[in-house]
Design a protein around this nucleic acid. Structure first.
Length: 459
RNA sequence: GUGGUUGUAGCUCAGUUGGUUAGAGCGCCUGAUUGUGGUUCAGGAGGUCGUCGGUUCGAGACCGAUCUUCCACCCCA
């Protein structure tokens, strides 16, 4: 090899084994999406630059992969822009497409564009890769899959309840116990900012608050101070730093702090509703935890916010997230469309399942039987049997070349194919097959029905 | 975007203060065994030491740049 080929930073190739395991997760998620009445859509991998920019905050804009225009794009740049050598200023003049950053904004665009064909409330699911120009690290890639389910066109809180159930159903099916669905409400955070008189610094406030369990109370206070949030303001919400215990205890703290805030009270009501309902219909394997410091960066959320934490013994960022956004389609010109949705981070779920050894062996769909190729006549005899086996939905193969026996056996062994058929002149004459069980090494002479039943018994 | 870290055979890794022809295990290929794999034995192939440049009589080793790996920050699935 002159030069070893490679793939871009933060991207991966997937081996057959890995794809099988990924499909296992995809299928469980998809099955549950369908079970809850969501319908699939797909959108292009790249959107117009303008569609994506400004929807994810400043940080998000930086992480969007931009696609350079085709042709002699530099000649179209204005001379003064060119002379300035300012990449940010030049970008809009040389870029008009970008890879999608998530599935929610493309979905909003889709809804606006197809509003006349859509029956609202519209429940859609979407499983596609997204791209971020981030620096890779544990559980973080530049290309990864999101599995989203959103409902748009209804303000009903029953949707929030159902989405929590959906999370629980998926993690239960994956046998992934111990996940924690953390939730909060943006109205509560807005209320807090309002009560302390720092409404204009809502984003800075929530971003700092979100780090409580990571950098501690002092760390959060320092960050807030550095963002010009006053000492008195921080004092006022001091109780939330120490709010511990169950959901009920936390709600009490909130009730005290947000007494004066209409929006804050609304948030508490919403949280209360979700908690009360799920008290009546308990979850199976996940726990629902009110986390009053949970903020999430995306600034389009307006109501409920969700984030799913992997089981405690696994070091991994969130494996899912979501929330309510009252005005996502507003930026594309469709007002009064409230939506709520959740997302599963497939690649992180994969890492968690791998670490905990939770992939079933059946996640590896394999060939069950392979026929040794002894030559033209024998191969035809074999292929006739294989054709019939495949009609029975049994994965069967013919070794394509009349290679040495040793080589063919070796191939079967390496591929972990459980049965090998040897059918030469004598078997053909007797309309039989020599079936070898690769695990035990035993061989027996059987007819076609015998072949079929041995394999079906094995599975 | 900031800081650190990694790169030697297909894989996992040795390689002494800079000194002949860069090693091991596993894997791979061939044969023992032309209708029997996984075990055993014998033999064999495979490396511009990530890349480019510099220091030196001499660089896998030292220096610089760059790419890549992993990790932390920022942010996030």
């Amino acid at each position: 090899m002159a030069q070893k080929p490679s793939i871009p930073k933060g991207t991966r190739d997937f081996s057959p084994e890995e794809v099988n395991k990924r499909n296992y997760i995809f299928e469980i998620i998809k099955r549950n999406f369908v079970k809850y009445g969501f319908q699939p859509i797909e959108t292009p991998s790249f959107e117009n630059y303008e569609t994506l920019m400004g929807k994810y905050g400043e940080e998000g804009d930086r992480l969007i992969f931009k696609i350079l225009n085709s042709g002699d794009f530099l000649s179209k740049v204005k001379d003064d822009t060119f002379a300035e050598k300012d990449s940010q200023k030049m970008t809009p003049q040389i870029v008009e497409k970008a890879l999608r950053y998530d599935l929610t904004v493309p979905f909003a665009r889709y809804v606006v564009q197809h509003q006349n064909e859509i029956e609202f409330p519209f429940k859609r699911y979407q499983i596609q890769p997204v791209w971020r120009a981030d620096r890779p690290q544990k559980g973080r890639f530049r290309e990864f899959y999101q599995c989203d389910a959103d409902v748009i066109g209804s303000e009903s809180l029953w949707q929030e309840v159902e989405l929590v159930q959906l999370y629980d159903d998926v993690f239960t099916d994956l046998k992934l116990g111990g996940t924690s669905i953390k939730f909060n409400n943006r109205k509560i955070l807005t209320g807090m900012a309002e009560v302390i008189g720092e409404s204009d610094k809502l984003i800075d406030f929530t971003v700092a608050l979100d780090k409580l369990d990571k950098i501690g109370k002092d760390g959060v206070i320092n960050e807030m101070l550095s963002k010009d949030i006053s000492q008195e303001a921080i004092e006022k919400i001091n109780p939330i730093f120490d709010a511990k215990g169950d959901n009920k205890a936390k709600l009490e703290v909130l009730n005290t702090i947000l007494k004066e805030s209409t929006i804050g009270q609304k948030g508490i009501e919403e949280v209360q509703f979700i908690l009360d309902t799920l008290q009546e219909i308990p979850l199976q394997s996940a726990t629902l935890e009110l986390d009053i410091t949970l903020a999430r960066g995306l600034n389009y959320y307006t109501g409920a916010i969700f984030e799913v934490a992997a089981p405690e013994n696994v070091k991994m960022g969130s494996i899912g997230g979501g929330g309510r956004y009252d005005d996502l389609t507003g930026i594309f010109g469709l007002k009064n469309m409230s939506g709520v949705g959740i997302s599963f981070g497939l690649d992180r779920i994969y890492l968690v399942l791998e670490e905990l050894g939770l992939f079933p062996t059946s996640a590896e769909a394999k060939t069950k039987i392979i026929f040794i190729n002894f030559g033209e006549k024998e191969a035809l005899y074999a292929l006739k049997a294989i054709t019939k086996l495949r009609k029975e939905n049994i994965s069967a193969e013919l070794y394509p070349d009349a290679a040495k026996m040793k080589k063919q056996m070796n191939y079967a062994n390496k591929r972990e194919i459980p049965f090998v058929v040897l059918a030469g002149t004598s078997e053909i004459e007797a309309e039989q097959f020599t079936l070898k069980n690769m695990k035990t090494g035993e061989q027996e002479l059987v007819d076609f029905e015998g072949l079929k039943s041995r394999i079906l018994d094995y599975v």
